[in-house]
Computed example of a mutant assay.
Amino acid sequence: MTTSAPQDQQPPGVTPFEEWAVPVDGGELSVPRWPATVPDAPVVVALHGITANGLAWARVAHHLAGRATLLAPDLRGRGRSGTLPGPYGVDAHLADLRAVLAAAGADRVTLTGHSMGAFLAAVAAARTPRAFSSVLLVDGGVGFPRPAGLSPDDLITAVIGPAMKRLSMTFASVGAYLDFWRRHPAFEDSWSPWVEAYIRRDLAGREPELRSACSIDAVRVDGVGQFDDEVLGAVHRLTGPARLLWAERGVMNEPQGLYDPARLAAAGLSDTGTLTTEPVPATNHYTVLTSDEGARVIADRLLAAV
């Protein structure tokens, strides 16, 4: 099940990792794994966002520095799990998560997730609280009611319109795809080897028709699913230790982030009793995970939780 990526295939500048191939319904789930280098280290499972892949967590692994084992699966329909078939949605992702937990062989793990992955983490912890020692939500997991009168496609366009457009684009070369992302407002001032490794893992196909490895169908199903009542309410059913780290700026690096004190107050989080919230200054929705500052905070909070 475990394959160590050869040294010449490791992304330059990124902490070396193993590639796990975990059997799941319909094939194998690809799971980057950064093993601990100290005895009796805790295990952390990290779930990425709706159009991301497991290497989005590479810089967090760098700051964990071997003090925990980090497993960051490419979710079904993304990255090197991009060819896994449907059905997609919450139940499929949580079944895949159970397979990863079984492969890890740990009794209880710390669960974290970014963006859509945070919603999946909240649902998993609400359904099976004994499986997780604590939960860390990163700029996601706290939802707001679905706007009335919007069709599923309109809803997807409103939430992740630019990302959906990218999934239907083709690129003549790897360099062209990297340049596309370098111009993204979220990364203009924060490009790094960690970001580049994450972006490169997203590519599928061959030049001159490279494309994102993300399945459009998977993204559409999962995007609509984030507005399901169970998903929106999961954070209110958490019974164990949980924390939300939120970025000050938004998806396109705009001043308004997904969360702020007023929005969090309106979400009625006081009824959870276990969830604490914390801003991560000078980060946006992406760089809260991929920047040195954001990844350091995430790693510190994960280690504190375990």
Rank of each mutant, 00 (worst) to 15 (best):
residue 4 S to I: 13
residue 5 A to I: 15
residue 6 P to E: 06
residue 6 P to Q: 04
residue 7 Q to E: 14
residue 7 Q to D: 15
residue 9 Q to Y: 10
residue 10 Q to F: 08
residue 11 P to T: 11
residue 12 P to A: 14
residue 16 P to Y: 08
residue 19 E to R: 13
residue 19 E to N: 09
residue 21 A to Y: 04
residue 23 P to E: 12
residue 25 D to F: 00
residue 25 D to M: 08
residue 25 D to H: 13
residue 27 G to S: 05
residue 28 E to S: 13
residue 32 P to M: 03
residue 33 R to K: 06
residue 36 A to I: 00
residue 39 P to G: 04
residue 43 V to I: 07
residue 44 V to N: 01
residue 44 V to D: 03
residue 46 A to E: 04
residue 46 A to D: 04
residue 47 L to E: 12
residue 49 G to T: 01
residue 50 I to R: 03
residue 53 N to L: 07
residue 54 G to Q: 11
residue 57 W to R: 12
residue 58 A to M: 10
residue 59 R to T: 00
residue 62 H to I: 02
residue 65 A to C: 07
residue 70 L to D: 03
residue 71 L to Y: 14
residue 71 L to H: 14
residue 72 A to L: 08
residue 77 G to T: 10
residue 79 G to Y: 12
residue 79 G to P: 07
residue 79 G to E: 10
residue 81 S to H: 07
residue 82 G to T: 10
residue 93 H to M: 09
residue 100 V to I: 08
residue 103 A to G: 11
residue 103 A to V: 07
residue 103 A to H: 15
residue 106 A to N: 01
residue 115 S to L: 05
residue 117 G to A: 08
residue 117 G to C: 09
residue 121 A to L: 08
residue 121 A to D: 01
residue 124 A to I: 00
residue 125 A to R: 11
residue 125 A to I: 10
residue 127 R to K: 01
residue 131 A to I: 01
residue 133 S to D: 14
residue 135 V to D: 01
residue 136 L to Y: 06
residue 137 L to T: 09
residue 142 V to I: 15
residue 142 V to L: 06
residue 145 P to G: 13
residue 149 G to A: 05
residue 151 S to T: 15
residue 151 S to C: 09
residue 152 P to W: 00
residue 153 D to N: 09
residue 160 I to Q: 13
residue 160 I to S: 13
residue 161 G to N: 04
residue 161 G to H: 10
residue 162 P to F: 02
residue 162 P to G: 08
residue 165 K to Y: 01
residue 166 R to S: 14
residue 170 T to Q: 11
residue 170 T to R: 13
residue 173 S to H: 11
residue 188 E to K: 15
residue 189 D to L: 14
residue 192 S to N: 03
residue 192 S to T: 11
residue 194 W to I: 00
residue 197 A to M: 05
residue 200 R to S: 08
residue 202 D to P: 00
residue 208 P to G: 12
residue 211 R to I: 01
residue 214 C to L: 04
residue 216 I to F: 13
residue 216 I to D: 13
residue 218 A to E: 05
residue 219 V to Y: 09
residue 222 D to S: 08
residue 225 G to F: 06
residue 226 Q to T: 14
residue 231 V to I: 03
residue 233 G to E: 12
residue 233 G to L: 01
residue 234 A to S: 14
residue 235 V to Y: 10
residue 235 V to R: 11
residue 235 V to T: 14
residue 235 V to S: 12
residue 240 G to W: 07
residue 240 G to E: 10
residue 243 R to N: 04
residue 244 L to C: 05
residue 248 E to Y: 03
residue 253 N to M: 02
residue 255 P to V: 12
residue 257 G to V: 12
residue 259 Y to T: 02
residue 260 D to M: 07
residue 261 P to I: 08
residue 263 R to P: 02
residue 264 L to N: 08
residue 266 A to S: 09
residue 266 A to P: 00
residue 270 S to Y: 03
residue 277 T to V: 15
residue 277 T to Y: 07
residue 281 P to L: 10
residue 281 P to Q: 02
residue 282 A to N: 15
residue 282 A to M: 12
residue 283 T to L: 11
residue 287 T to P: 02
residue 289 L to V: 15
residue 292 D to A: 15
residue 295 A to S: 15
residue 297 V to F: 06
residue 298 I to L: 14
residue 302 L to F: 08
residue 303 L to C: 10
residue 306 V to D: 11
